[in-house]
Amino acid sequence: MHQSTTLILASASPRRRELLASLGFPFQVQQSNVDEHVSRELAPEQIAETLARRKAQAVAGKLAAGLVIGSDTIVVLNGEVLGKPRDEADACRMLSSLQGQEHLVVTGVAVVDAETGRTECGHSATRVKMRPLSEQEIKAYIATGEPMDKAGSYAIQGIGATFVERIVGDYFAVVGLPLYLTAQLLSRFGVSVLK
């Protein structure tokens, strides 16, 4: 592998697109559209990595060459995995349980070589403490629409940032693509951020 390798992001997320673009690589975007159901028996890290790998492999399977990057973010509160909310009531339930609590955000990243099938995978775990929220704040936040396609029903890079008291770990992992981990995985294929 060398610098001219085609990179493909297996995600329609504008946040992941912006983060990958910040590394300076040219890349293409292809949405994966995979089944995101996994066994709840798996550890959170395994769930995030499994889904990231599934997304990258789904796109890589349609290509002759290139490196495909897949990523998946989950929120874990007291052992319960919180995905994207089904509806406003589900978002309200999630935010009500997260408010005033510390939770874990786990983002898995997988890089798949479409030509050989070789896969490198990893995850980043970040602790997030959310301040206490009133019922009115939760309802007003849901009314903005921002929580509806986000794991755990909040966006740390949006209005949801005003609820986050502190984080311990990788901010970019909470947004959806840990840049340190992504760069490390790409380097295993000979792709470097610095030429």
Rank of each mutant, 00 (worst) to 15 (best):
G61P: 13
P85F: 00
A48Y: 02
A43V: 00
Q30S: 04
H37N: 13
L194W: 05
E137V: 07
A52C: 10
S71W: 06
A183W: 05
K150N: 12
S96W: 01
R53G: 11
S192R: 01
K62D: 03
S124V: 10
V29M: 11
G66S: 10
E80L: 06
A60W: 07
N33P: 05
L23S: 07
P147V: 01
L63D: 12
D170V: 11
R54I: 14
V38C: 00
L185V: 02
V111P: 04
L98Q: 13
L179M: 03
V168E: 08
D170G: 15
L185G: 13
L42K: 14
F27C: 01
E49C: 12
G190E: 02
Q46M: 03
Q3I: 15
V112D: 07
A12P: 09
N78M: 02
L77K: 09
R166Q: 06
V168D: 07
D149F: 08
Q31E: 09
S134D: 11
Q46E: 06
L77F: 01
D72K: 08
T119E: 02
D35M: 12
T182E: 02
F25S: 02
G152C: 02
D170T: 14
A21K: 11
A48W: 01
E18D: 09
L104A: 07
K62Y: 07
L23G: 05
L7G: 00
N78I: 05
Y154F: 12
A155H: 02
T6I: 00
A110T: 07
H2K: 08
R127I: 08
D87G: 02
D170S: 01
R118S: 04
A21M: 04
R166I: 01
T162M: 09
